[in-house]
């Protein structure tokens, strides 16, 4: 698996953290105040709390449970219960490759030389969950894979599909730059209704 879309830039503004996932890998995706995107394992090494429930303070992501702060490299740099302690380097969160391009936040769980998917100058519209697996969705459109699927439509739609569970995926939709986003949004709602009527 190479690059997978995990969210849209406008849905994760600076200072924001969201939960996301690529199949079984649960992610905390966050944007630092200076605008850098990060995708980390969604688990604080201290007590296993989901970091996506935490908060961004300065250029760090903090866990909501005990306030442990992790710097942009994923290393713990502050433990509020022991303010004078310099935490050992061994306390760190697994991090993944994460790049924002074309308004889409892309994550690769492994090192990769694959270039980011081409978006053809389209602009992002919205993300929405669909009760269907990512491979089934690709198969529905006769696409070879689900990273991006171009759909023949009035709006020149491109779907970047994020596999979540066996029965759920997220669609991150882009469309022609001059497309009416509201119209595309309605088209996506109709598409979802159609897809979810397809027997598994």
């Amino acid at each position: 698996m190479d690059w997978i879309a995990v969210g849209l830039k406008e849905d994760v503004p600076p200072g924001f953290v969201i939960p996301s996932r690529i199949a079984d890998t649960e992610l905390a995706v966050w944007c630092s105040p200076s605008g850098t995107y990060h995708a980390w394992s969604d688990r604080c090494p201290h007590r296993g709390m989901r970091l996506s429930h935490g908060f961004v303070r300065g250029e760090t992501l903090a866990c909501i449970y005990h306030g442990w702060q992790y710097n942009e490299a994923g290393s713990c740099h502050y433990i509020p219960a022991h303010p004078k302690l310099t935490p050992p380097d061994t306390i760190c969160v697994p991090t993944y490759r994460c790049i924002e391009a074309g308004g889409v936040i892309w994550v690769s769980l492994t090192e990769t030389d694959t270039p980011l998917p081409a978006l053809g100058g389209r602009r992002t519209v919205r993300s929405l969950p669909v009760s269907m697996s990512a491979p089934d969705l690709a198969a529905h459109f006769g696409a070879a894979g689900f990273t991006t699927i171009a759909v023949v439509s009035d709006h020149d739609v491109l779907l970047a599909v994020q596999p979540c569970t066996d029965g759920e995926c997220m669609i991150h939709a882009l469309a022609a730059p001059d497309a009416d986003r509201s119209a595309v949004s309605h088209w996506l709602e109709d598409l979802r209704a159609t897809l979810e009527r397809v027997p598994a």
């Binding site: 849209l8 919205r126 997220m170």
Partner: peptide
């Protein structure tokens, strides 16, 4: 609430 980005921004 994970799959609803606009709801998340509204709650924020």
């Amino acid at each position: 609430l994970d799959p609803y980005p606009s709801v998340r921004l509204w709650m924020r």
